[in-house]
Design a protein around this nucleic acid. Structure first.
Lengths: 120, 120
DNA sequence: GTAAAATCTGACATCAGTGTCAGGTTCAAG
DNA sequence: CTTGAACCTGACACTGATGTCAGATTTTAC
């Protein structure tokens, strides 16, 4: 598929998809004319990238991480270096903290929303 | 307490505390010489602000939200307008989505970390 | 072959909280 | 008093993913 369809199907802008490529997160074949072509797998890949961005990982970290994942088709992967494992462990700690903050913030919102609803 | 102590006790930089004040998130008394003075309550307030920032709320939204919270001492609050409730509900939906993304991302990290550990 | 739609590269702008620095003032301890 | 630590305001820089625009090229449909 071409970039427009990938953008439509993932909800990610074409701009971002090109950016992902410059960051080494996403690869594309090119038509003889130079336009990008993606395999079906790219859809899931882009969604995964979005989730990792949402979790606050930077593109450089994602670029290191992706080759170390077990692919759905079980293809062989790179192995994570100790340095990467250490940094991913730190990210996991940060994510756990973030989830805790989010949960508390959501409780605050719930309380304000609930209180307002009671006053109707 | 003065700004240095508040910064130390909350882990938030003096720079940020002053910024919070310009955004209407935090108030301070002033000494005759013009230096900021905070009550004990400010510590919890700053921590709450940090959590809301971590949840992705912008300062303008936090400034609207804070007066509508039930204070721990039960002091009277402003009431949330319908527009605010609507926007907070949207924030809550976003937070729920974000928690889902974070959870999935954490699972990805777990898997990579676990796989690397197994290969030692 | 032609026109319209899609894509290309490259450049510049944006957001919002935070870091940092400069030059001046205030506070607290001796 | 004096001196050093703490604080003040104002200004500028940064980050990093994304928006947007311009001008050129490719693809697709008729």
């Amino acid at each position: 598929m071409r970039i427009g369809e990938l953008a439509r199907r993932t909800g990610v802008s074409e701009r971002s998809l090109r950016y992902y490529e410059t960051q080494g997160l996403l690869v594309s074949d090119r038509t003889p004319g130079g336009q990008r072509t993606y395999p079906e797998r790219a859809v899931d890949r882009v969604i995964l990238i979005q989730e990792l961005f949402a979790a606050g990982l930077h593109s450089a970290k994602i670029a290191e991480l992706l080759p170390c994942m077990r692919d759905p088709d079980g293809a062989p992967n790179e192995r994570a270096t100790p340095a990467l494992v250490s940094s991913l462990t730190a990210e996991r700690t940060r994510i756990n903290q973030l989830i805790a903050d989010l949960t508390r913030s959501r409780a605050v919102l719930d309380e304000v929303i609930e209180t307002a609803a009671r006053e109707l």
